[in-house]
């Protein structure tokens, strides 16, 4: 994993309202590495520090102590250009309503590239490309972004960041408030970006089921600290600890653990419906029936 480290966080601390009675330590000795091309999920309940964390990754917030390295460079060095970091680490916030402002969708998506100093045509080209990749129908490009549905607004918001061609795409709860189909569409879109473009993706979500289905690695935040940082099945194996901090594992994880404790030999590492189905069919159709002891 050491071959291509995109980002390294070393003992990052962040304290709100330092030296006052309202002092809150939002991040506490957070250290981890992000390899190029990973698909990472960040989970944690509200107030666990996950929003603060992602804003550190693109330099919107500055750590009180600790260092962050991007491609080996310390982002807090005086000669490091934080605006350049924001171009390369794209952050899409939770509510698209917070960023849409232009009269047409197309102009809105051009905003980022233009801020990067690109010429009109170049920015337009980027916008086209980005809008196409998020699958927005072309007849909508010159309409007002305010008339779109929730799911479409989110696509435009994502396109607005993609048009800047970032190396990392961070999404803060991109599916909040969407209906199930809209939710799946957005997540499938993100997964496709990761697959096809090799872009590094960091997904912040409340939904364990979504996280389990898509990501390769999960970082669990609790009270500003990294609680777990591992593969999804390893993280969800700690479902009891997760529960203790107000989180939960996907439903199937519980199911598998319960079946196992009742004597059925099933794969407790299953975290998606597909994996659970395979394991259950294996266990029930007698592939390893010899080890069964049902109570």
């Amino acid at each position: 994993m050491t071959d291509k480290m995109l980002m390294i966080l070393d003992k990052v601390n962040y304290v709100y309202s330092e030296d006052t009675a309202y002092q809150i330590q939002a991040l506490k000795d957070v250290s981890f590495k992000i390899a190029e091309g990973q698909f990472i999920g960040i989970i944690g309940h509200t107030g666990s520090g996950k929003s603060t964390l992602i804003q550190h990754l693109n330099g919107l917030m500055k750590a009180t102590t600790g260092s962050i390295y991007f491609h080996g460079q310390d982002i807090y060095d005086d000669d490091f250009d934080l605006r350049e970091l924001r171009n390369r680490v794209g952050l899409v916030f939770q509510y698209p309503e917070h960023q849409l402002f232009e009269t047409t969708i197309f102009d809105d998506v051009c905003f980022g590239p233009k801020n990067q100093g690109l010429k009109e045509e170049e920015a337009g080209l980027r916008a086209f490309e980005a809008l196409r990749s998020v699958g927005l129908p072309e007849e909508l490009y010159y309409q007002s972004p305010f008339d779109l549905s929730g799911g479409q607004k989110r696509r435009v918001a994502i396109a607005g960041v993609l048009a800047m061609k970032p190396e990392v795409l961070i999404l803060d709860e991109p599916t909040a408030g969407l209906d199930p189909a809209g939710r799946d569409e957005i997540l499938d879109l993100v997964a496709r970006m990761h697959r096809e473009r090799g872009i590094t993706v960091i997904l912040v979500s409340h939904s364990m089921e979504d996280i389990a289905k898509y990501v390769q690695r999960i970082i669990v935040m609790n009270h500003g600290e990294v609680m777990f940082d591992d593969t999804p099945s390893n993280v969800f194996a700690h479902y009891r600890e997760l529960e203790a901090v107000g989180l939960a594992a996907p439903q199937v994880t519980y199911l598998m653990h319960e079946l196992k404790s009742r004597g059925l030999s099933v794969n407790t590492e299953a975290i998606t419906v597909e994996e659970a189905r395979e394991s259950l069919i294996g266990a029930l159709t007698g592939i390893d029936s010899g080890r069964r002891d049902i109570r």
Partner: peptide, 20 residues
């Protein structure tokens, strides 16, 4: 209708379709 179903319900449905 663009809705989904709880995970256990989907899993149960898949198992039933597999002949269980």
């Amino acid at each position: 209708y663009r809705l989904d179903v709880p995970q256990v319900t989907i899993l149960a449905d898949l198992l039933r379709q597999s002949g269980l």
